[in-house]
């Protein structure tokens, strides 16, 4: 790669005490690139995002953001945790506003005004005053995603955002994310264990092995943007899905 990558990991590894979670790995993400990480559960995918967002420290290796060390880069990431982490006492608009309020240092009221502008694009306008317990799973994920966008960072870390949804809602939200992403094309790292989701949304896909996670394969996704559901039925997509599944099996030590 000739350009300086937006995110660059060099010889990164992570252990919790005796537990080696991430093996030594190199990984790059270009500016405006949508990269997915596919791997079996428990292999350390969330841990990688924790390190990037500054919650955990890497055991070895270095991380650079646009060429500068991570710890001198402020907070370039907006993180969306695996569980949606909505605050049950905040209405939809105020949960979204949390991004503006905390990351953007606005007053609660100013944050709410900003958040209100964001709601239509997320299909949340009519639910603005609802509380989280009144929302469906798909709606909750939309709120969590809007809150992530509201943080106003260059880069998004999305941890299995659709993992807990039923298949129909999931596809709907994937297509909708594709559309949202197409507007500003932020740099994204998406964690998933859903092969089709990775194919549908990504420019590039890394496949992780079982713990300690290693990169077992890396694929470019040869599909045009904007992506459609029909593309998944094409020969290129089906071949890629097959390759990904094989790589996952190799990574988990099973024989297909």
């Amino acid at each position: 790669m000739t350009k300086i990558p937006a995110i660059s990991l060099r010889r990164l590894s992570k252990s919790f005490g005796d537990l080696d979670v991430l093996g030594v790995m190199d990984l790059d993400v270009g500016r405006g690139e949508f990269v997915s990480i596919l791997g079996p559960s428990g292999c350390g995918k969330s841990t990688l995002l924790s390190i990037l967002s500054g919650i955990e420290e890497a055991t070895t290796g270095e991380i650079t953001i646009h060429g500068a060390p991570l710890n001198q880069s402020g907070q370039p990431f907006a993180w969306m945790p695996q569980n949606d982490a909505l605050l049950p006492w905040r209405t939809v608009v105020d949960n979204v506003g949390l991004g503006y309020q905390v990351a953007g240092r606005l007053s609660k009221r100013a944050a709410r005004d900003q958040a209100r502008l964001l709601l239509p694009a997320f299909g949340l306008e009519e639910f603005s005053r609802a509380l989280p317990y009144q929302l469906s799973g798909g709606m909750r994920q939309r709120v969590a995603l809007a809150r992530t966008i509201a943080q106003g960072r260059d880069m998004l870390l999305l941890d299995e955002p659709f993992g807990a949804l039923d298949a129909i809602t999931r596809t709907e939200l994937q297509l909708w994310l594709e559309q949202i992403w197409g507007v500003d094309r932020p740099t994204v790292i998406l964690i998933t264990h859903d092969v089709r989701e990775a194919v549908l949304l990504s420019d590039r896909i890394y496949v992780f092995s079982d713990r300690p996670a290693q990169i077992v394969a890396e694929f470019e996704v040869p599909l045009d943007r904007p992506r459609t559901i029909e593309m998944l039925a094409g020969a290129q997509a089906t071949q890629l899905e097959l390759d990904l599944l094989r790589a996952l099996h190799v990574g988990s030590g099973d024989t297909p």
């Binding site: 500054g54 907070q75 990431f77 993180w79 945790p81 982490a85 605050l87 905390v102 990351a103 943080q151």
Partner: peptide, 14 residues
């Protein structure tokens, strides 16, 4: 308190 909520706020710089 939900751990993820606390962590989320920390990543936002709280």
């Amino acid at each position: 308190s939900e751990r993820d909520s606390v962590t989320l706020l920390r990543t936002m710089g709280a």
